[in-house]
Design a protein around this nucleic acid. Structure first.
Lengths: 125, 125, 125, 125
DNA sequence: GTGGTCTAGACCACC
DNA sequence: GTGGTCTAGACCACG
């Protein structure tokens, strides 16, 4: 668990934490029943208010990614492979739909979009 | 000028206004020197505070899309074709970069992304 | 009298007119008793509201640069050479004082300022 | 942070606030990461609407002088020395260009301007 | 009529 | 506590 937060970003800190934990789960780096750092510990590590880590964990629980048991800590929830796959694809799918809508309304052809995407894939390190 | 705003959206109203005007300009529906509705008129039409429309126009001016003159109103700025093309591509570019970052962090291969995009392009009417 | 106004400038149109007439008077291009274009004529030439030219002339009269006689038109007022010289120098003097204050408060040495000024004098065409 | 505003000035209050904060930063009196007064606190101190201080801070952020984070407050941004130097010189440069333009349009020679400047430098205490 | 500035309140999300 | 957004008024300068 290597979480990095940026104070310069306009993204709320609890969102940054959430996204990185979700990402670890979806990539399979965090497996079922694996324990997460305690709210208090994480807050200390990130030099962040406990309220912030608490909020991140609460939302993760609400969205079904983790379970929290009082006195025992938080653990990655049991997930079917379908659940993970669906979540992963949903994130990308949503963005791709937006791009198709936008490019059409701006008069950018589908071919151009594909070309840009390929070029960026090679560019981004 | 047919601007629609949603109060339920989390997106600030002034952002919604901005985006729709930018979109009209980039699509070429609003041409150089064409007058925009006055901030008062637009505010009335949208049942929104004058300050909200003013903020939208102020940012549009700052970003070079429009010019505004006291006592005369606001007008679409003169744009080089390069300016328009660049702005158009920038919108798509930004989203594509995000997708590349996200798909990599989720362990989705580039080929899969391209396939999804092609499938969506055919699906979306 | 070759007055040029810019709609893109944030400077009020009547100010632009004023400045250019004052400049002509101070440079000596407009001499005592010389007639100025009528308010109506100037408004037409500049494609500007008569209210605007009227306001410019009114202020020029208030500041002693011109005289307006109903039915006869507007004329450059009689000025002593001292008056002209003083006005000319005052405009520059005010700005130079500001520069000295600013450069000192920003820690820019007087020598640097002089060097910048000389460089700019050669640069500006 | 000793900000003074004048209601009699024609300069907008938010401009006065901006200039004084910029000046403090450029002079080096406000250092990187140093916290600025909260927009609420500053508004109270200056007996001014919150919106006015907010507008000043928003523009300072847009121009790269400060960073502001919801829930945490506003802080002087990290600046390269080049950034500071450039901003400092720009302020003077802008004024010098104006002087060159004005003196030429008034028929005052460059030598005269330099002489006035030198005289003023000795005069101003 | 236009936009520019300002006020004195309010609600929300974040920390 | 912080800033972000929004409202419903107001006065001013400009054209």
């Amino acid at each position: 668990m290597n979480i990095v937060i940026s104070n310069r970003s306009k993204e709320p800190i609890y969102e940054q934490i959430k996204k990185q934990i979700v990402s670890e789960i979806l990539k399979g780096n965090l497996r079922e029943e694996e324990p997460l750092p305690s709210i208090r510990q994480l807050a200390e590590d990130l030099r962040v208010s406990m309220i912030t880590t608490k909020k991140a964990y609460a939302e993760l629980e609400r969205e079904g990614y983790i379970n929290t048991a009082v006195g025992k800590g938080s653990f990655v929830a049991a997930h079917s492979n379908d659940f993970l796959k669906e979540k992963r694809l949903y994130i990308i799918d949503k963005q791709l739909r937006q791009i198709i809508t936008d490019s059409r309304s701006l008069g950018i052809s589908f071919v151009e979009v594909i070309d840009m995407l390929k070029a960026l894939d090679e560019e981004v390190e």
